[in-house]
Design a protein around this nucleic acid. Structure first.
Lengths: 360, 360
DNA sequence: ATATCCATTGAGACCGGTCTCTTTATATCT
DNA sequence: AGATATAAAGAGACCGGTCTCAATGGATAT
């Protein structure tokens, strides 16, 4: 009675049709759920399909329909809580709309991103959500549009591309955080980013190839400029990609004269590293130095003191990106929209008045 | 010179063949890189393909070859660092071997898992890596085998299924952690799991449907039994699925007479919640109570005190699972293997002698 | 009884690749 | 030169669905 283990070849509509004694077309109609069929025949076919354990070959289906039911997502690093949460948001919306998600990691590298995109297009995804590693190289993204695959950018935007994007309101978030520090009496505020760079220091914010980083840096800069701080750019640092490099960045920063009294970390990973650096150096937060991190990560609530953070509704951003894409997939012809999601500052305990605030 | 935006229909081998003035078969040979072709023709075709911006349709390719080049992964929750790290390990290995990964979330629910599996099989994935939500329901997993799709279980194993698995050595890890607590003088040790359950208390460890949870519980129990502790089961708790329920679990636990002097958390999420509960209650770690968490998560190193953890090499586990699957995909006929990856206890500062250790 | 209509069902082309088999052209051998 | 081997290219079937169009047949209309 048992199936022979080696029933390799899979059951097709033709097999079911034969078993149900109807034509392939008819069987296909009930199995695919599209044409009109009499109840009697529908039953026969359904029964036969069940008996044979028929499973539709989505590949074949996709080939004729031209739709794969898959949304491709290219992120910088799934391991990063920011992206995994976003992906969760995307997946949840996608599943509800009947789409599946296929994920590719770019490792924030342009070449990896290009090949991921190529591959996903090859797999005939219906749409793409991409976190572009660089906002100044977009040939491959233009290709996507050329092929006619809807695209939504996530976390970073490229206005020149003329394509939907969902990001945080990075400029505003950074400016708000900076203004808060200014209000708390800080006059020397550092910003530390994980963006890979040859030089820790920044020469010109316009050359930052990542729009999220650029926006934030400009927010930090502008808020300070508005407060009359001179040369705020000296405290902007890049390249905090791992613990060792972060330690170095923090050390160099503290050697500046005067040393910054507050540190802003560009994401929760950098924030964690900065926290550890500070801890290792023996500085106490917020008495010796203040800090703010982007993203309301797990760890920020259980440190002593808990960390003041710029909270981005990442899950919602993921959802929004997916919703946008799916609307386009459903043929809605809507104007290109660049959504910047409002962020908020969650004040906890890592910011205080600077040590010698009288000196000012 | 510009392409008309609406070049909808994609370029096919036939188009390239026509442009290169060769037969479809010949063009396919060079485009697909399989038959023998003269250099001259190869050049012509390559040139034509480039000019037309030909992109192979992987769907069509998959359909004839029967291989999709995709590995399906079904996890409990990508948002959980444990899974996202594992997925990273899986993806890295997969990409190197030329495979892509498509991820589905089960939310630890059997039905969602079933439909995810169905869907992935429909997409004709070449192989599957699944974290089974329950180890006592496996019809859908048997189906996978029946269809002939190689399967590797991750994090949890089901011996009866006769299929490869990669897990941590949960029993041993739990026993080791428990023995450490016993050595530190603890006689009342609690174990808190996030496994959903009607009742917080456990009646019989054999009815735990998740093998990882079961193994750990049994490890905790057995280590205590060996040390002559009586009725250790009274301190085993389930259902710490969110902060509120964890708070309740911890509260109830502390109302026991005598109250446990050490808490073991089943994963980093539970650990974080337990830490917060304890903090909220105002208990100091490790002076008032000791704790150990599973998984070396971010947050465990920046708390005061840092948390002693059972470290699982999750990334490597992911890699191993993928390697195993890919070996099978490459037709290697190897015996079924259940790999339990060694874990280690990282002693930090959250364990001390119990408050009144003399009382014992 | 005959024509008309509508509901079903069947036949077969098609999607874009792969792959087998055949044909053609060139090179090698005696 | 004629026979044989071999490399290269072409024809066309096939994968497993979808979908168009034609054929069939019973019900209703005249």
């Amino acid at each position: 009675m048992e199936e022979p283990l080696a029933s390799k070849r899979s059951v097709t509509v033709a097999d079911v049709a034969r078993a149900a004694k109807v034509s392939k077309a008819t069987a296909a109609r009930v199995l695919g759920g599209y044409g009109v069929v009499s109840d009697k025949v529908r039953e026969q076919v359904t029964a036969a399909a069940a008996a044979l354990e028929y499973r539709p070959n989505e590949l074949a289906r996709s080939m004729t329909t031209g739709k794969s039911g898959i949304i491709g997502v290219v992120v910088g690093d799934i391991e990063n809580a920011f992206f995994s949460l976003a992906v969760r948001g995307i997946s949840d919306v996608a599943r509800l709309a009947g789409f599946n998600v296929i994920i590719a990691n770019s490792g924030e590298e342009l070449e990896a991103e290009k090949s991921a995109v190529d591959l996903l297009i090859g797999k005939r995804v219906d749409g793409l959500i991409v976190t572009p590693a660089r906002c100044d190289r977009m040939e491959h993204l233009q290709d996507i549009r050329r092929v006619g695959v809807p695209l939504v950018l996530f976390d970073r935007s490229i206005p020149e591309l003329g394509v939907d994007s969902v990001t945080g309101d990075d400029f505003d978030a950074a400016a708000t955080a900076t203004r808060y520090l200014l209000d708390m009496g800080h006059r020397h505020i550092a910003y530390i980013s994980a963006m890979d760079a040859d030089d820790e220091r920044l020469t010109d914010s316009r050359e930052l190839s990542n729009s999220a980083v650029r926006e934030r840096v400009e927010g930090v800069l502008e808020a300070q400029a508005a407060a009359g701080i001179e040369d705020p750019q000296r405290y902007i640092r890049l390249g905090a990609t791992d613990q060792a490099r972060t330690d170095a960045v923090v050390k160099h920063l503290l050697q500046e004269m005067p040393a910054p009294t507050a540190l802003v970390a560009s994401d929760s990973l950098v924030g964690l590293r900065v926290f550890k650096s500070l801890q290792a150096i023996g500085l106490s937060i917020p008495d010796d130095i203040s800090m703010i991190s982007f993203l309301d990560a797990d760890w920020t609530t259980v440190t002593t003191p808990p960390i003041t953070v710029v909270d981005q509704p990442v899950y919602e951003m993921g959802k929004k990106a997916a919703e946008r894409l799916i609307s386009r997939l459903n043929g809605k012809d809507m104007p290109v929209e660049r959504t910047a999601v409002k962020t908020s500052l969650i004040k906890r305990g890592s910011v205080a008045w600077p040590p010698h605030s009288s000196e000012q």
